[in-house]
Write a protein that binds this DNA or RNA. Sequence first.
RNA 1: GUGGCUGUAGCUCAGUUGGUUAGAGCGCCUGGUUGUGGUCCAGGAGGCCGGGGGUUCAAAUCCCCUCAGCCACCCCA
Length: 414
Amino acid sequence: MAKLQPVRGTRDLIGEDARAHLHVIDAARATAGTYGYRPIETPVFEFTEVFQRTLGETSDIVTKEMYTFQDKGGDSLTLRPEGTAGIARAVLSGGLQNELPLKWCYAGPMFRHERPQKGRLRQFHQIGVELIGVAEPIGDVEVIALAAATLDALGVLPATTLELNTLGDNESRGAYREALVSYLEQFRDRLSEDSKQRLARNPLRILDSKNNDDRAVIADAPSFSDYLTPDAQTFFDAVRGGLDDLGIAYQINPRLVRGLDYYCHTAFEFTTDQLGAQGTVLAGGRYDGLIEMMGGQPTPGVGWAAGIERLAMLIGPTSTGPRPISVIGIGPAGEKAALKVAQDLRQTGFTIELNYRGGLKRGLRRADKIGAAVAVFLGEDELARDGATVRNLDDGSQTDVSLAELKDHLAEYR
RNA sequence: GUGGCUGUAGCUCAGUUGGUUAGAGCGCCUGGUUGUGGUCCAGGAGGCCGGGGGUUCAAAUCCCCUCAGCCACCCCA
């Protein structure tokens, strides 16, 4: 047991776990499709610079959580810690800036070397959407509406709260940052160790601290809304107005900040209190500077990503599809016939379980275990009359059916 | 990366102050005669007591290290 454990922070998806996982992806893709977002797949690893330059040299993800390695050619590669940077890279690689707006949805594994706990894995999976090339606030509104629709399709929307904030434009943020730092410097010795670090690296982060001493200091800190430029304020008002028009409820959270450097203007999160400390289920925002940061023409973008594992924990049991039909061959001739009958039924769209070994008793026992609705027997008796015996496993009733009418007889179980 | 809790059969868990062949329930397999499941009865398989080291005549039990999970911090999806 200790010998072959999965790598720390990774896990196998089996049975209901696998089903729930795929269900989340299917629902997300279907919902995104109705908004006109098309699937995109990018590689799970990229050149390290793709993440280093864009996520911010000081972010925790870049400084201590990336799986970075050298490949045999000597290039530094990194397993993607998030999806947006790779997609932005794909825009540039593919010369797609002439085809704006781009509307994409994706799903796949992400990798971060963190201490695992509930809702936090080292290989985890995200679904996400990106809207690239739309600078107008209506883009933010659409993307948030799509987020809500996705959560709704999964039945988890009522369990979440939408928190909304603006990070403003560069001008607003620069001015506020300065004001915040000079305020916090006065109380430096009252801040937690973590926050002292953050003061230099990422002061906005302190606003989000859970430390009580920090909170006391933050309570009287300057408010970001006082530093928003008129443009940034107008933008934010438009986003709020759009959400109001669509009847999407949200709470303004002035302390909502982002871990990644490429965000500006709108920041939002759908959170839940049902997942312990890892309460963020879906998070996103606007990243107008990203593509330029990678060396392209300035190109606006908005998007979000959601944790599939976290969503899977919130949804109820998923449907298992139609109950199977068990086809049981008895004796060498029966087994031969069963293989053919099973094949034929499968091609007609029935869900068929074939018994591989053992006789009728064993076949029935297995049929019961897998929850089959009916069993079809094919033995010498049946072959002699060119038919099959169909047993209803719920009430035990049996009927003789000719092979020709078998499909019709089973029709209700398809 | 920091702190706390946990780790005995496939699963959920017992295991007395360290003392012989480590137990239960569920699950699994076989049988209860020839072609009838679920129930019932009988039997069976399955444990490096997470791993390594130490203390002891003797360790699942005590000590140290280590690995993993969970919870919180941190971080974030």
